[in-house]
């Protein structure tokens, strides 16, 4: 019954779950670093990203070995391919978290109504992105083919927050250099957090394909 092969598949699945946990942690800490200017959170984000890069390399090597030695087919093949793609999505999500953390900077001293709107939106995006990553790997763990729809709906909310940030930034006085620099950084932070949501949706779609073999894959790129 190929027990050794099953153990390899179980190990790959366990790797994905752990990577999901690390990626979600990276996004949460990056959000805290961004809106609370926490140095501890910044360090925790970079540590999580480095951890996930190591795991990513290890998982990809493991997938290569399984493909070469076990020649999986049918649902086993779909599982291995899903692990390969999910591995990449989670690594990218953590990398985006590190990008967000690097953008952390206090806002200009002038009190801004807009500042509250922007930071609240960024916090919401970060929290939702981390939640989406946890949901996506939980779907992988439960082999849930329907989570992609939930994730797509959550991604819509993330996108709306990002649009709100862009609209708010466009409304402020861009001739103030200090304010302009801060606003630009927050615009990029929103962009990277929006990508975290996309990666979580990609994970959900891979899970659907893994389980059903039928769902079309529409990668959220960009």
């Amino acid at each position: 019954m190929r027990e050794g092969f099953q153990e390899e598949l179980d190990a790959l699945s366990a790797s994905v779950l752990e990577e999901g946990r690390v990626a979600a942690h990276a996004v949460s800490e990056a959000t805290r670093a961004l809106v609370d200017w926490s140095v501890d959170a910044f360090d925790a984000t970079l540590a999580a990203e480095a951890d996930l890069k190591r795991r990513y390399v290890d998982t990809e090597a493991h997938v290569e070995t399984v493909l070469a030695r076990q020649a999986p087919v049918a649902s086993d093949l779909r599982t291995v391919l899903a692990v390969l793609h999910i591995n990449r999505s989670l690594e990218r999500a953590a990398h985006n978290a590190a990008r967000v953390a690097h953008l952390a900077t206090p806002p200009p001293r002038r009190a801004l109504v807009e500042e509250a709107v922007i930071t609240d939106a960024l916090r919401a995006m970060g929290e939702r992105g981390a939640e989406m990553l946890r949901t996506s790997v939980d779907a992988f763990d439960r082999r849930d083919p329907g989570a992609d729809r939930l994730l797509a709906a959550l991604d819509e909310l993330v996108d709306r927050e990002n649009e709100k940030i862009a609209e708010t930034i466009l409304s402020i006085d861009i001739n103030d250099p200090e304010l302009r620099q801060w606003a630009s950084r927050m615009l990029f932070a929103g962009r990277w957090l929006e990508r975290v949501g996309d990666h979580a949706v990609n994970v959900g779609e891979r899970v659907t394909y893994m389980v059903t073999g039928e769902a079309p894959i529409v990668e959220h790129t960009g």
């Binding site: 019954m1 190929r2 092969f5 999986p72 087919v73 049918a74 649902s75 086993d76 093949l77 779909r78 059903t212 073999g213 039928e214």
Partner: peptide, 17 residues
């Protein structure tokens, strides 16, 4: 047959179970 067979018996056979 080798990516998504319709029948569970086929799936069990091609995956070695």
């Amino acid at each position: 047959i080798f990516t998504n067979p319709a029948n569970e018996r086929t799936e069990a056979y091609v995956t070695g179970r």
